[in-house]
């Protein structure tokens, strides 16, 4: 006696299904390929720069690392200054929208801040050089006059206001929207019961925020700051237009000799570059790519870890 073993039921494979699912997989993998291609082509094109000799550089610089070091310093310094200014303001705005503004207004106020993100960077550059720099210059003169003994404010003051501090202000404005949006989301996720418990114990609104909202939102604030830092590091046009650059390493904020940033240096020099000069600029771009990649990966790592352990979801 033979028992007929029923063949396992298999879903019918339709060509439509095959094609469609393959197409989605290909598209998804294409993103990984693109990211890898970005890295590979940048490396391939920047190899000649690492071995370039003196003739490729101007101003007595002998090798690539001497060339890129002041630029890398300027990039990090400008971004750090911008972050220093933007973080408290972003937290303030996020708190205002999430916990202070009237409920009905809150969403439209959020839109208003998002509008800042819609302004193209070249317009910010134009605004920085024609409005902000002349407006800040008198202030800079006063600062140097009164606090010139302090190394950061050392003279001689820039006559145009096109200093690294102005650049940092513009950068801070540009990274505000993304940081605000992230902080706002995190603050809104604070468990309602924690807030109500704090208020019921007699805490004022500020005490409630320090006890419930900020501790809960700390990882979110950190990652928002990191993402803002990533944006500020890679911002090009505003810096290229506003800054009056020089190849120096200096912490002074108000002088006319400022360290330039990698991105701005590429934008300013690329149109006229030729030969190995192009490779040198691409190599600096590779350095910038690596810096921002590291910053962003750390930020995403912090966000993802928080997602896993928070009680919010």
């Amino acid at each position: 006696m033979t028992t007929a073993v029923a063949p396992p039921i298999k879903a019918k494979q339709r060509p439509g299904d095959r094609i469609f699912s393959t197409a989605t997989v290909v598209a998804g993998s294409l993103i990984l390929v693109v990211l890898a291609a970005v890295a590979i082509f940048l490396v391939a094109q920047s190899l000649p720069a690492f071995t370039a000799d003196e003739s490729a550089f101007k101003g007595g610089i002998t090798n690539f690392w001497d060339y890129v070091w002041p630029l890398a310093f300027g990039t990090v310094w400008a971004a750090a200054l911008a972050l220093l200014m933007a973080v408290p303001v972003a937290i303030g705005i996020a708190l205002f929208i999430s916990h202070y503004a009237p409920r009905k207004l809150a969403q439209s106020l959020g839109y208003v801040v998002d509008l800042l993100a819609a302004v193209p960077s070249v317009v910010f550059g134009l605004w920085g050089i024609t409005v902000l720099a002349p407006a800040l210059q008198p202030l800079y003169s006063q600062l140097v006059e009164w606090f010139g003994w302090f190394p950061l404010f050392a003279g001689p003051v820039s006559g145009t206001g096109r200093t690294i501090l102005t650049v940092a202000v513009v950068l801070a404005v540009m990274i505000l929207p993304i940081m605000t949006a992230l902080c706002r989301e995190v603050f809104l996720q604070t468990p309602r019961l924690h807030e109500e418990a704090a208020l019921a114990l007699g805490a004022t609104r500020w005490e409630m925020i320090t006890m419930a909202v900020l501790p809960f939102g700390r990882p979110g604030i950190i990652s928002a700051a990191m993402l803002g830092l990533g944006r500020a590091l890679g911002e090009t046009m505003a810096v290229a237009m506003v800054l009056s650059p020089a190849s120096v390493i200096s912490f002074a904020l108000l002088q006319s000799q400022n360290p330039s940033t990698i991105a701005a240096n590429i934008a300013l020099n690329f149109p006229e570059a030729h030969g190995v000069g192009v490779n040198v600029l691409i190599a600096t771009g590779l350095i910038l790519f690596l810096i921002t990649l590291a910053v962003n990966m750390v930020a995403r790592f912090v966000i993802n870890r928080r997602k896993a352990f928070s009680g919010a979801n």
């Binding site: 993998s29 993103i31 990533g230 600029l281 691409i282 771009g285 790519f289 921002t292």
Partner: peptide, 22 residues
């Protein structure tokens, strides 16, 4: 893919230009 899409949002625009050029 999810992770690298997030990372990709952080690519500086000038690096994207350099990539296309390279």
């Amino acid at each position: 893919i999810t992770f690298f899409v997030d990372v990709m949002t952080g690519i500086p625009s000038i690096v994207a230009g350099l990539f296309a050029f390279a």
